[in-house]
């Protein structure tokens, strides 16, 4: 357990100390969210209608576009081979790296979601459902991103292919994430159905990802 904890801390501090740190992630969200009203017009009703979907898409893009970072640096300096051969199970190492990536990329968004919600005129009572659903959904999204990153670990500048590969897998999470958020916000008939399915998808992804990624890294070695 101790080496895994150390790895977790190492990954997070490496992420935040290289290239802008948490500011980079938050900056990305701000830029995309600010661009939207300029694109679709400043009408508040329209913004309120699309706000949940926009915030979900921004979360998805942030995780998709940073996927390459999960293994790239470690492969370059050779520490990935060490991590996978020495010490704990490769699957556990991958799970820890996945969670560290989640903390670095998804957590900042959850923290500034209240501000972004104000900018996009998020419907009243929509904040907590949104944060809760994003919390659950983003774990699954990070898991799938890990699979993509491990598959193309030995390819340079693989981000576009990772996007192509992972995009289809993101669609269920996006659909149920938005649907769960909407159901909880407006308290529809069965507000928890979509949330339960979203949780199931995230859990399945979290279980499959370490094994698939370990196989992919082995095949790439």
């Amino acid at each position: 357990m101790k080496p895994l904890l150390a790895l977790f801390k190492r990954d997070i501090s490496l992420f935040f100390r290289s290239g802008g740190g948490a500011g980079q992630a938050i900056g990305f969200y701000l830029v995309v969210v600010i661009l939207f009203p300029f694109g679709v017009g400043p009408e508040l009703n329209l913004l309120a209608r699309i706000s949940i979907g926009v915030l979900w898409v921004v979360l998805l893009l942030a995780i998709l576009l940073s996927a390459e970072r999960i293994f790239a640096d470690d492969l370059e300096d050779g520490s990935l081979t060490l991590l996978l051969t020495a010490g704990p199970l490769p699957e556990m190492v991958i799970l820890v790296k996945l969670l560290a990536h989640w903390v670095s990329i998804a957590l900042p968004l959850l923290v500034i979601t209240p501000l972004l919600g104000l900018l996009l005129n998020l419907p009243a009572g929509g904040l907590w459902p949104l944060v809760l659903c994003m919390f659950i959904g983003s774990l699954g999204l990070c898991a799938l991103a890990t699979i993509g990153a491990s598959i193309l670990v030995s390819i340079r500048r693989a981000n576009q292919i990772i996007s192509l590969l992972i995009l289809p897998l993101y669609i269920p999470t996006l659909i149920f994430g938005v649907s769960a958020t909407t159901d909880l916000t407006f308290q529809l008939d069965q507000p928890y159905t979509a949330l339960l399915i979203l949780t199931a998808i995230s859990l399945i992804s979290l279980i499959i990802a370490p094994f698939a990624a370990a196989q992919a890294l082995k095949a790439n070695a």
Partner: peptide, 15 residues
């Protein structure tokens, strides 16, 4: 590597 892609895709098609 393609096997892993196909396998993950196959699991995901029903979902």
């Amino acid at each position: 590597v393609a096997t892993i892609v196909a396998a993950v895709g196959l699991i995901n098609i029903p979902i």
